[in-house]
């Protein structure tokens, strides 16, 4: 039995083997304008990690299932693994590297440290960016609401109660 590793769908029986055309993509990352030449198949996550060497944004699944890749686009939290960088041309992007100001940790970064809201640290940049996006929505939040709103960020180390406590601290409640 011969099997192609991929079952082909008619639309792309013979996908082009030629190099993909690269497009100029401008991203304003943490306030700095960056112009890259990227193939359309490069996700925003891979553009950040592989092309801008901003590896603070993590890849935990590459399929929108974990939240490790969360960044802020125009202040809104999104999963950067599920958008192509070309689609974000011109967008303002904030990553974990852009949260601290002049060497002073962002209140969420400080709160995560104070409350031991992580262990291995791999989900942490995504948790913090997600929380930053959540707080930017500007609504007061009960503890149940924080839990629900942060459920798109999986922490396999199981730091959830400390994550909730850290967010409460950053919201000005302790």
């Amino acid at each position: 039995m011969t099997q192609l590793q991929t079952t082909e769908v008619p639309a792309a029986k013979n996908p082009s083997l030629a190099p993909p055309d690269k497009l100029a993509v401008t991203l304003i990352v943490n306030g700095v304008e960056q112009t890259l030449r990227l193939a359309p198949w490069t996700t925003l996550l891979d553009a950040l990690r592989d092309h801008l060497n901003l590896t603070g944004t993590k890849k935990g699944c590459d399929h929108g299932q974990c939240g490790a890749c969360t960044v802020l686009v125009e202040g809104r939290r999104i999963n950067s693994c599920l958008t192509f960088a070309v689609m974000q041309d011109g967008a303002r992007i904030t990553t974990i590297e852009g949260l601290a100001r002049n060497g002073v940790l962002h209140p969420l970064q400080q709160a995560f440290t104070d409350h031991d809201a992580f262990q291995c640290g791999y989900c942490t940049p995504g948790q913090i960016c997600s929380a930053a996006g959540l707080l930017a929505e500007g609504k007061p939040l009960t503890r149940d609401e924080i839990r629900e709103a942060m459920s798109g960020n999986i922490c396999r180390c199981g730091a959830y109660p400390n994550i909730v406590a850290a967010i409460e601290q950053a919201m000005g409640r302790t």
């Binding site: 969360t70 809104r76 999963n79 599920l82 959540l134 459920s151 798109g152």
Partner: peptide, 9 residues
């Protein structure tokens, strides 16, 4: 449905 991030997208 989904998560806060996904609903934004």
């Amino acid at each position: 449905g989904a998560s806060g991030q996904l609903r934004n997208m």
